[in-house]
């Protein structure tokens, strides 16, 4: 019961998002007030549902890869065997935070060409850093005596990782994933400038044609999407039972 109640707020946001996506056409009167001069006030080059779907799939693909690679890399460099790489990886993770997403995106295009692939790669690279950093902070922040105690109980290294280190570090890792995904939902919109079609499309098209209604439609949906995902993360069950 409490599990269900926990999900009420994210569900509200998601249903609002879905309603806005499907019912954008119904709001024509409202947008007509905002943009009285334009012939068309609802973005119609693609329907919002498929734009939302593409936006979600790009961010989702990048997030899954970033989580796999980021958490994997952070685990690898905190094992005895990979420990030599720890200073380098943690320095890279903090330096990489300074790379502007637009620059990363712009640098991915010459290598990978236009379309969806450079966006996924840029979002992946950009989303990797908070995840790596937070996983490192989470695992390294565990009191060494806890690890000692687990070893003293006869746990193997793998067991310690799965049953002690990861559960203890999980809140910090989740916070990193949350930052990464929320930033990427907004950054993906810039992808519309390099030919990926997603919720950034109406915004770009609105800026180019001077049609504020388009911009609002894109921004509204991206904002709702970000809020939905963020509220979902904030209510994920905490894996630690204290």
């Amino acid at each position: 019961m409490t599990e269900c109640r926990r999900l009420i707020v994210p569900l509200c946001w998601f249903s609002l998002l879905l309603a806005a996506t499907l019912g954008m056409g119904q709001l024509e009167g409202l947008f007509r007030v905002i943009e009285p001069g334009s012939r068309q006030v609802i973005y119609e080059r693609a329907d919002f549902l498929s734009l939302l779907g593409r936006h979600l799939s790009v961010v989702g693909a990048a997030a899954v890869l970033a989580i796999l690679i980021g958490v994997g890399a952070a685990i690898a460099v905190t094992r005895p065997r990979g420990r030599d790489f720890l200073p380098l990886v943690s320095q890279l993770a903090s330096m990489g935070q300074t790379f502007p997403p637009v620059a990363v995106l712009a640098l991915a295009v010459p290598v990978l060409g236009f379309g969806t692939l450079p966006i996924i790669v840029a979002l992946l690279l950009y989303g990797l850093l908070p995840i790596v950093r937070n996983t490192l902070v989470g695992i390294l922040g565990i009191d060494p005596s806890v690890r000692e105690a687990a070893r003293g109980m006869g746990m193997s290294s793998g067991q310690i990782l799965r049953q002690v280190e990861l559960p203890l570090a999980a809140p910090v890792i989740l916070a990193g994933i949350r930052t990464s995904v929320t930033i990427n939902i907004a950054t993906a919109a810039i992808g519309a400038t390099v030919g990926a079609s997603n919720l950034g499309d109406p915004i770009i098209s609105g800026i180019v044609n001077g049609n504020t209604a388009y911009v609002i439609q894109g921004a509204l949906l991206i904002g709702l999407l970000a809020l939905s995902v963020d509220s979902l993360f904030s209510r994920l069950p905490s894996p630690i039972v204290r």
């Binding site: 907004a186 950034g200 915004i203 800026i207 504020t212 894109g218 921004a219 904002g223």
Partner: peptide, 14 residues
């Protein structure tokens, strides 16, 4: 912060 930067720029145009 949840409004994408590109949209905020666009929203201020009008």
């Amino acid at each position: 912060q949840t409004i994408p930067s590109i949209a905020l720029f666009g929203l201020l145009l009008a």
